[in-house]
Nucleic acid binder design. Structure first.
Lengths: 109, 109
DNA sequence: CTGCATCCTCTAAGATACTG
DNA sequence: CAGTATCTTAGAGGATGCAG
């Protein structure tokens, strides 16, 4: 799936998936939902297996779509902190609902 | 995204998306949720732009995962009817939740 | 009518190395 | 510390034609 707005004209569900459908988008969101505020390398340690390439790309996508907030401090060494925005936080109930369904399917199969 | 169970060990949301994340899976489910019962060609007409290849593959995936039911009548000409199972129907509330979130994001951006 | 087989394309994802 | 540049690859997605 893609982060592009390839969603068929006007389907909100497909649009939602276009925002969070990337392979690492949800793991990143999940890490931020647990820790509230994380620096780049903390995020990298929390999202097991992700590379710099994938992490920075996911962060950029999510920021462009307004789901996470990036705050950069011009210090030496550099410090950048990431957190969920209101829009990002508001996604969590929907994820919960999907998770509950997912659990039911896992036990069923 | 894929229909394979590539979901990281034990994340219910990723597992859920592995079941419905294919490009045409949700459009098919959506059509069946509106019409309850559809034949192959009716489905094809309802899901705008889908090819035979993609439709039959999506139907097979969804059936294997227990989200839709396939009933075949051995007549001439052949007749096959598709509908949502209990598991498929139980997905709809989660989709609604995701749709509500999607709508909010569409107006925000 | 309801599909399957084949071949092809395109892009998300990953590996590796490098920089301010 | 926080990323970027470049190259490669795997596989989802698609077009077309054939079959029971």
């Amino acid at each position: 799936m893609s982060n592009k707005h390839t969603a068929q004209a006007g389907c909100p569900v497909l649009y939602a998936l276009s925002l969070i459908g990337g392979k690492w988008h949800l793991p990143v969101i999940w890490a931020l939902s647990r820790h509230k505020l994380l620096r780049y390398n903390e995020l990298k340690r929390n999202v097991c297996g992700i590379t710099n390439m994938m992490l920075s790309q996911s962060l950029k996508d999510l920021e462009n779509n307004g789901l996470i907030k990036r705050v950069q401090y011009n210090e030496i060494p550099p410090r950048v902190e990431y957190s969920l925005t209101e829009a990002g936080l508001s996604l969590l109930p929907a994820l919960d609902e999907l998770a509950k369904w997912g659990v039911k399917q896992m036990v069923r199969i």
